[in-house]
Design a protein around this nucleic acid. Sequence first.
DNA 1: TTGTACGCGTTATCAA
DNA 2: TTGATAACGCGTACAA
Lengths: 356, 356
Amino acid sequence: MTQVEITQPASYTGRSMLVNIKDIARIAGVGISTVSRVINNSGSVSDATRKKVTETINANHYVPNNSARNLKITQSKNIALIVKDISNPFFNKMIQVIEPRIALQGYPLMIQNVDASADELDIAIQEARDRNLCGVIIMGGCYSYSEERFRHLSIPCVLLTVSARPDVDPALYSSITIDDEQEGCRATEYLIGLGHRRIGFIYSALEPVTPNTLRFLGYQRALKEHDIPFDPNLVANSMNIRESGYTTGFRAMKQLYSKNRDMTAVFAFADILAIGAAKAVLSMGLSIPDDISIVGFDGIEMAEYYHPSLDTMYQPAAEMALSATNTLFDMIQGNSSKHIVYESVLLKRGSCRKLL
Amino acid sequence: MTQVEITQPASYTGRSMLVNIKDIARIAGVGISTVSRVINNSGSVSDATRKKVTETINANHYVPNNSARNLKITQSKNIALIVKDISNPFFNKMIQVIEPRIALQGYPLMIQNVDASADELDIAIQEARDRNLCGVIIMGGCYSYSEERFRHLSIPCVLLTVSARPDVDPALYSSITIDDEQEGCRATEYLIGLGHRRIGFIYSALEPVTPNTLRFLGYQRALKEHDIPFDPNLVANSMNIRESGYTTGFRAMKQLYSKNRDMTAVFAFADILAIGAAKAVLSMGLSIPDDISIVGFDGIEMAEYYHPSLDTMYQPAAEMALSATNTLFDMIQGNSSKHIVYESVLLKRGSCRKLL
DNA sequence: TTGTACGCGTTATCAA
DNA sequence: TTGATAACGCGTACAA
């Protein structure tokens, strides 16, 4: 590591030196409101005046202060996207759809990452006020929001991948989800249909009700419906939020395999865990799917590029993200809320085999 | 897809209904400044008054308006992290270090994603003004910032993974980088040292000077120093920014292999490309490293969890991220700027073989 | 078409 | 320990 330290400390101009709308007006020899009109393209300004003001703005590198603007303005165009764990590749995929879509409408988007322990609705309430938001999308999180919290968030809100508690008035928010329990059940039934009976389940859950716990319920339901006894030894639940999903999956698989040599398949609640689990299998010198079948959940790109490509319960991330932005714009325009449940698609790529 | 539309449109309370500091003062029967003192823990307030005000705040769900606060406040504690492509796993790794570190100091961090075509310095200048920032970290981007732009950005600025043009006064910014050309050279020399002569290079570059182009220069330098002729046919440069890194790497490898059956090794400028390239090799039924050796760059977690695990030029992402935040705090406290160059570590995991 | 003056919600100064 | 009041930078009636 090479380090070069500059001896002469940088001197910053400081806010007092920053040029504001009043300075521009003075320099250009016009009134403040004229400058404002030029900036916002509102009202009517003569071409000569407009030119003069524009030139002054450029020459002095004037940048309007949004804090002051937000203070005055009634209806802003600020939208916030609050994400629980921005490093999740599945969420990343959605962000890449949401962002250009919102930018296209001329709305500035701010992404706010919140950590696992934070209450995203509290943050949304604060941000709504601070940035004078006109709408918010919340990605990730859990099902524990109360009706009272939504009432305090007095702007259109779309929940993406989660919903609220059943007792919350559905008019207060929109939700774009999949039926996690149902799809978890389907993924498990896929393995059962291939003849597997000793099926492991890998997940990590902190909150009481999350998509993960719902998928776990689906796993249990599938077993029950096919008269397969539920065995707690086949379930690995990591409460360690410090480690990555890959590591969690890796360790969970090692643990499951050491305890259950008769296990023939594993369902991981997310692809990143499935990949970690797959690495554990492969690094033990075992084969996928000959020794262990693996099915993941989400349908992230990496599940396809892994070798072998992993079977997964694909969530239509792009459609869901698009739907979320459209619904938000609808709500901003005064339309009512929507609750849309998408269906997953089981992608079969060869990481699960049929038992004889 | 199931859709439930709510007939009754939500009616939002609207900003006029929002309670502000004046309301709290009135309800609590105290002066505005007393409420302000309670909120900010400044000045002295009697316990009884403090209790009364706190209760009023909670009962009325008062949330201070940060726009107004930023307008008044001299020194804010807002820090922005501007990221060019937030979905890059390598950047994600850094974000996970930067965020808690900044939060620990009690500074609110806002992450702003900018797309490939945007000028991150322009955005920084705007944000600095809007959010009354006290500092900014810029991740990714290119080497094309001019001195003038830095002067307009009148707050401490740390560039992470890139630096500025050599003619820019180094006192105006800090930079945390690696020597991309040198490390690109080292990665190539690693392959040469194993006996490879026909070495492909995969990259994608849009801007004139980026870390990618520097690594490419390093690749060329290594060849030259070992008297290996540079062959343009061995270079795949994707200009398509719409497709993912995995896809780019996959297609690049297919293309390189079809054109160069005598190619024995490939150096990809980033691990995500290396993974795509690896998948191409494996899906053609070839072996890594028996048929093709692959070395990547960055050292993202996925390179390890891939099978086979990929050799890579590891960047000390966590250290660099930590260094960036520390340097920023130093600058905020009035210290001078720093320019730190880290060294990469070549991780050998078996995806490259020695030629006989 | 242009300029003046007021208020947005907050913090800081100062006097009480 | 408190409260009145002047900024902060901007948008917008309203007057000219």
